[in-house]
């Protein structure tokens, strides 16, 4: 049987990889890819806590994971729409060059 710690450390590693992608990529689409990795690692944690909890018939962890799915879909739809809109106006997807709202 796999202990709970393996899942938690796996999810922490995936979260850190996503964090690195968000902090260091220049392309706005690549930053959104990093955010997807972070959301997935959180979902692994929720599913693992559901399975390793005291009562497996309490579905709270899976319900929470499904709501995170919905929020991730909403986030990626709005984020990519913003990237495409900026690309139309400024012809760039580099995060440093998107400075129209910078005072």
């Amino acid at each position: 049987m796999v202990p709970l710690s393996w899942y938690l450390i796996f999810a922490a590693a995936l979260f850190s990889i996503g964090l690195f992608g968000v902090l260091s990529r220049r392309n706005a689409v690549a930053i959104l890819l990093g955010i997807e990795l972070m959301l997935n690692s959180v979902n692994i944690n929720l599913a693992a806590f559901w399975r390793y909890g005291k009562d497996v018939t309490v579905m709270t962890g899976q319900v929470f994971a499904i709501i995170v799915f919905a929020v991730a879909a909403a986030e990626v739809a709005v984020g990519l729409a913003l990237v495409i809109s900026v690309y139309r106006r400024r012809n760039t997807v580099v995060a440093d060059e998107i400075n129209m709202m910078k005072w």
Partner: peptide, 24 residues
């Protein structure tokens, strides 16, 4: 592809993993 502060992002990611690891 990486911005000029990529090493800072890498450091922060490693620190996050180490912090979570020790907390767990």
């Amino acid at each position: 592809q990486m911005n000029k502060n990529w090493w800072f992002g890498a450091l922060l990611a490693v620190l996050t993993f180490a912090g979570l690891f020790f907390l767990l």
